[in-house]
Design a protein around this nucleic acid. Structure first.
Lengths: 199, 199
DNA sequence: GTATCAGTACCGACTGGTCGGTATTGGAAA
DNA sequence: TTTCCAATACCGACCAGTCGGTACTGATAC
């Protein structure tokens, strides 16, 4: 094995294991054995077990964010752009379903985490919401989306729908297509009742 | 402390701790100290640490399901019923935000869990989706909701929106009201384009 | 009233295994 | 010779779970 690939090998193996069982159920010896590396080698690349875990989770998160942000810069009509963003997220969700779950599980308890890793995480998350938020803003300026809801809320809703669909992915339920999902969202987010519902 | 309240005391303390840090970061000694009980007492009520954890999570889940199912039996117009269901879920989310996170975090990795606890969990979840699904079916039969999406998918979407909003609860962002949320959903789920979007 | 006692809740010091982390070695490659 | 790393031996803190014992309760008998 060429030098420098160690880190990658460790992370890939760790990801596979961490996504299959709980943190405390995975021993470093498990990882060492599965990755065919020496135990000490882990500590040349990672501070400790916790560091390894968060770096695995973060790298997956990174990947998804970058995927998403790349779409936003592209010039395209609003609906098209949203569709592409969804496709990006969806492809990530299905390619790396376990990791998505791990991210989600970790996100659920982020408010309690501490330290610089938490900060990097929140930063990434903000980037993601912002990327989607930009698209939403565009939709609002085009008049396709109601302007009374903040773009971040709209992003959060869109992400929530995507996540809900992703959850069903492996469970035999019919897959809802991207266009169906996006149009469900767009119809709900439409600015159609100027003086309708209170609040 | 009156006799017999030990079990409750243990679960309440455990919930507080388990929702604040990760499973492996909480020792039974932590719980014992915080609950002012003897360590052995835990084992008169719970099989082991894992059992305690899942019973805590399950009891919260139970609570929410019951809250929800109680609403479904009531006779009310479709939109009203949906609003009430949302109110129920919302009240649970805000009263027990930490626990919701814990449930969510655990749900994310349910596919890997094993044993009878997992089964009870899945059963509860099915009950919840079904309760909402019943409401959706009613909406479909009234023609208020598009019939091409399965009720479970609609439930999942509704739950996803609620969860998304719950996440923002403590973060300074404006709270989206129940009617706004429900109408967002209803508008998106409306059966308005009979031959519109493909799929 | 009280003596006895079975059943049970409860306690907490103790233990034995586990596992994160370190130090060492020996062999391959350069 | 030096560098790198897998392999391995090792350490010791940590912690889930145990177990011997105490305290309480309520029933039965006298």
């Amino acid at each position: 094995m060429p030098r420098g690939d160690k880190r990658k090998a460790i992370m890939e193996t760790a990801e596979k294991l961490f996504t299959s069982r709980r943190f405390h159920e995975i021993t470093l010896d498990d990882i060492v054995e599965a990755a065919h590396i020496g135990k000490g080698t882990i500590y040349t690349y990672f501070k400790d077990k916790d560091d390894l875990f968060f770096q695995v989770a973060l790298s997956g998160f990174d990947e998804m964010c970058d995927l998403l942000r790349r779409r936003v810069t592209e010039e395209a009509p609003f609906r098209e752009q949203l569709l592409q963003a969804c496709a990006a997220i969806h492809s990530f969700f299905s390619r790396r379903r376990q990791l998505s779950r791990m991210i989600q599980s970790e996100e659920a308890r982020m408010p309690f985490s501490k330290g610089p890793l938490r900060d990097r995480w929140l930063e990434k998350r903000a980037q993601m919401v912002d990327a989607l938020g930009q698209i939403m803003r565009k939709g609002q300026s085009e008049g396709a989306v109601r302007p009374d809801l903040p773009p971040e809320v709209l992003s959060a809703f869109m992400l929530a729908l995507l996540r809900a669909r992703a959850r069903e992915l492996g469970e035999g339920v019919d897959p809802v297509s991207d266009p169906t999902l996006v149009d469900f969202f767009l119809q709900g987010a439409r600015d159609c009742k100027p003086s309708g519902i209170p609040n």
